[in-house]
Design a binder for these strands. Structure first.
Lengths: 208, 208
DNA sequence: GACGATACGGAACGGTGTTCCGGTTAGCAA
DNA sequence: TTGCTAACCGGAACACCGTTCCGTATCGTC
């Protein structure tokens, strides 16, 4: 969560360009802007004033515009950054918990990710070409992660083996929709239920 | 079209309030703002600068904000104003043309009205409570008008009598959707076709 | 350590929504 | 008709926002 993801988002974007290494201070600014923007977007929405973001990042306005000339560039970068953070959290979960438990925990994490993206949906469908590659990036990053979690849980006999990763992804996303305002822990409970449902058909039956 | 609709939009709004008569100059300003805003919205969209509207209306900014404290108030008022203008155009059409012809002409008028509302749809669904009563106002004003036109055309034997006003309203509105950018007179032709379809099943068959 | 390339910060600019208030006007009563 | 007052008008003024620009600071390298 709080680990700095230094990796650059290159998949899905226009590849083949030299991708020059950033200078150290430029990299620092970029990271600060990304995390600051993520917080601001979460609290004040994607239409939040630019100065709020630069202030929280401890950065000048010029710096923001050099790295993200368009607002949509920043939004897309934040989105990719958080997709990465969510996807990258899977391995450590898999190492710390049993397969089914890791799967459950990651889906909770994924649901949290989706919940914060509610405000973006309007922007995402604005037709700005900066967002065109986001859906495929979403798929490319999450499908292998979830597929691996499902596989190892199925191999361990802790869940059934006939679950399509995409179905589960969509189902989890949809589970977060009705929540909207009443955040009374409704979504986590529904996801827990969903995972229990997966466990139900496991070949090696074990009573939890 | 260019006739000043002095009537106040009272149906659908919170009724029961005193509805004090406006002073003459206030009424003038309100009307000027309404027609100016309608033009500006049509050309520059609903996000057009306030000053553009006040300039076209020949009015100060303070005047606009006194009559329409919120932008949504102005948008809703323009909408109601144009609904009224469109609905009120029916009687004169009915007086000037034969029943079926009047029906055709009014549907063309209605299609033109809908076409200019493309840009509003985003604002309309923004959840602002100022827009809550607009759909019912739309229905309340248009259904009787169209119902009357259909009735007299059916009674004259010029069109079939089994047409639901609501169906025709929705159909006409939908006909304007695909038009979007290519305004090569596509929509008017489709509506003419629709009306010819109505004529087809008329009891007293006459070859146009 | 020195030097060019690169990146930074924040003042400044143009544009926008909104408020405020001195001057004007409509409507009414004498 | 005249005079009075509440209601209304206009636009200057304010606050805020996105964006640009450029003198200064920092990085990476020789």
């Amino acid at each position: 969560m709080s680990e700095e993801t230094t990796r650059e988002a290159d998949a899905g974007a226009a590849e083949g360009q030299p991708r020059k290494r950033l200078r150290a201070d430029a990299q620092r600014s970029t990271d600060a802007l990304l995390t600051a923007a993520a917080e601001v977007f979460a609290t004040s929405g994607v239409d939040a004033p630019v100065r709020e973001i630069t202030a929280k990042a401890g950065v000048g306005a010029g710096t923001l515009y050099r790295h993200f000339p368009q607002r949509s560039d920043l939004i897309a970068a934040v989105f990719r950054h958080e997709v990465d953070a969510c996807a990258d959290s899977a391995p450590s979960l898999a190492a710390r918990y049993g397969p089914a438990e890791a799967l459950a925990k990651w889906l909770q994490r994924f649901a949290g990710f989706i919940a914060t993206k509610r405000g973006l949906s309007a922007a995402l469908h604005s037709g700005d070409p900066a967002y065109d590659t986001l859906p495929s990036y979403f798929q490319q990053r999450f499908m292998p992660v979830l597929g691996a979690l499902l596989d190892s849980a199925a191999k361990a006999g802790e869940i059934r083996s006939d679950v399509d990763p995409e179905d589960l992804l969509v189902a989890t996303r949809n589970l977060t929709l009705p929540a909207q305002e009443d955040d009374n822990g409704h979504t986590p409970r529904m996801i827990a239920l969903l995972v229990d449902g997966l466990r139900y058909g496991a070949p090696a039956r074990e009573t939890r």
